[in-house]
């Protein structure tokens, strides 16, 4: 049997909001250590890696490893049925054909169950090695969302240029060009407002706005985002999910023709 309970269903809602624009379906790998998802978008340009540790759940039981293919849009619809303060429990039997979402109101006067059919999926799993990156930026997630949104008005892609002066985001197109520079700011009043730039080597990489604007949907999960970059390799954009895990997005860079 598989059973995972979260007092705050809002966390799971936010996780779904953070992936639903990129993925139509995904396999949820459930084991003793927790729930993991690795899935690429249909164009194979980006990848979502989600990890929810078992010890972050309020109750967790997984008697045997399960691979459950789920429709992200269906799951998202179901989670919209949960009240903001509801507790959520995911439940499946061994060799399941469906998974049940159980929402319970805080004073336990309402219990709602939604059963969702699982889907068979062909999976492409990528082996992503541990990598040390030449530039790691931590910044407020709201600021990153804003930069992606603002620069998207000027072009289809954003160039990230990291130097010892800081990081510069720029975009250009038919209407003109724009750039936004950020310097390290560790004196911010609050930790979540800090900008931390750890640069070993300067770099310049270009990424498609369309995907970046999907990644920033994870902003409500965490006040800070971490961007890890090296020349000519995919960007890693990471948001922590409280004490329970993280969501990492990988995005292939654009290269000059």
């Amino acid at each position: 049997m598989f059973e995972a309970r979260l007092v705050q269903s809002a966390i799971l809602k936010k996780v779904l909001d953070a992936v639903k624009d990129l993925l139509t379906e995904a396999t949820f790998e459930c084991s003793d250590s927790g729930i993991q998802v690795q899935a690429m978008d249909s164009a194979h340009v980006s990848l979502v890696s989600l990890n929810l540790r078992s010890d972050g759940f309020d109750k967790y039981r997984c008697d045997r490893n399960l691979s459950m293919g789920m429709s992200i849009s269906c799951m998202s619809k179901i989670l919209r049925c949960a009240g903001a303060e509801d507790t959520v429990t995911l439940r499946a039997w061994d060799n399941p054909e469906s998974i049940t979402f159980i929402f319970e109101s805080p004073n336990k006067d309402k219990l709602a169950e939604y059963e969702m059919k699982l889907i068979n999926m062909d999976q492409e799993h990528l082996g992503i090695p541990e990598t040390s990156y030449s530039c790691v930026i931590k910044m407020p997630s709201g600021e990153f969302s804003r930069i992606c949104r603002d620069l998207s008005q000027f072009g289809e892609s954003i160039t990230f240029a990291c130097s010892k002066e800081g990081i510069k985001f720029s975009a250009s197109g038919d209407y003109g060009s724009a750039n936004i520079k950020l310097v390290q700011n560790t004196d911010a009043d609050k930790e979540e407002e800090a900008v931390v730039i750890d640069m070993q080597e300067p770099l310049k990489l270009t990424f498609a706005c369309r995907y970046l604007n999907c990644f920033v949907k994870a902003g409500p999960l965490c006040n800070q985002v971490q961007l890890s970059m090296s020349d000519d390799v995919p960007l890693v954009c990471e948001y922590k999910i409280g004490d329970i895990g993280h969501i990492k997005y990988y995005l292939a860079p654009k290269i000059d023709d």
Binding site: H44, V45, H125, L126, G127, A252, P253, K254, I255, D257
Partner: peptide, 14 residues
């Protein structure tokens, strides 16, 4: 115009 890469060019399928 820069060309969009495929993620599978960077990581092996396992």
């Amino acid at each position: 115009t820069p060309i969009q890469n495929d993620l599978r060019e960077f990581y092996a399928l396992v």
